[in-house]
């Protein structure tokens, strides 16, 4: 079977201490998958090593059967919002245009057609009237949507998103969920680091439970069980039982 994301035996360590240990993950195409796990579980590291930003100690990652280096143009990335300086002197449209730098290649500057494309994806996240706004003057939810627009303009088949719901209000969250589900409808594969366990069954069709090791992964109804959550989150039982209460509703 051709998996959109196929991770095998992935081990990642920063200075000897392993943060991912022998992790496997197979994601079929056209799936919206949540990656959940406690802080420091290695979710960001998993995404970064899938994108070739971190060299793993062992293991392999294939995107639609080929290594990432051959698939760059079909993969898009939304980093954690806090990973950049939002006081950087630039505006919204410029940031979204950065999504096209890969296609542009060395030395070529973005021109009119790139700006038109960027405006289109800004419209998709409902931010077209913010195109000339300084990025320092955006709310958290708006920053998140700008990052999403930058990923959309990459026009990829596989999307990796690191906590796209972090710090956004309820309205924005709904808008983002709708966007993700639209991507899935177009047959794209979207892997999303997600923190709110309660909304996992509602938003996603697959889930991966991660805590250094892979605890489980697969369709939500099969693997999103109290047992698996307990293993993933260890002693924090109150958290987990609140969740199961929510699921019974």
């Amino acid at each position: 079977m051709d998996y959109a994301i196929d991770i095998r035996d992935l081990t990642v360590a920063y200075r000897e201490k392993p943060v991912l240990w022998d992790v496997d993950l197979q994601v079929p195409p056209g799936v919206l998958i949540a990656i959940v796990g406690p802080n420091g579980a290695g979710k960001t590291s998993l995404i970064k090593s899938s994108l070739g930003l971190i060299k793993p100690a062992a293991g392999s990652v294939l995107i639609h059967g080929r290594p990432y280096s051959e698939q760059r143009s079909t993969v898009a990335y939304v980093p954690q919002r806090g990973s950049v300086d939002w006081d950087f002197p630039t505006n919204v449209l410029d940031v979204v245009t950065m999504g096209l730098y890969g296609r542009l290649g060395w030395f070529k500057r973005p021109g009119k057609s790139e700006r038109i494309e960027a405006l289109k994806s800004l419209a998709q996240v409902g931010m077209e009237e913010y195109a000339t706004r300084q990025i320092s003057q955006l709310s958290g939810g708006q920053q998140q949507r700008v990052f999403l627009a930058r990923a959309l303009v990459q026009d990829a088949n596989v999307y990796f998103m690191d906590e796209p719901f972090q710090g956004v209000d309820a309205t924005t969250e709904r808008a983002i969920v709708e966007l993700l589900q639209n991507l899935r409808k177009q047959g794209k594969t979207v892997a999303v680091v997600h923190h709110d366990l309660q909304t996992v069954p509602e938003y996603f069709d697959h889930v991966m439970l991660l805590n250094v090791r892979r605890i489980a992964s697969g369709p939500v109804e099969e693997v999103f069980t109290e047992d698996n959550l307990r293993t993933t989150y260890g002693g924090r039982v109150a958290f987990v039982s609140a969740l199961s209460a929510a699921r019974k509703q």
Partner: peptide
Amino acid sequence: ALFWKEFKLLSFDSDFLGTLGY
């Protein structure tokens, strides 16, 4: 001037620049 766009993205979001193959 030559590396303008590359240096800009390197300064703003180097990881993202890395995922693009630079």
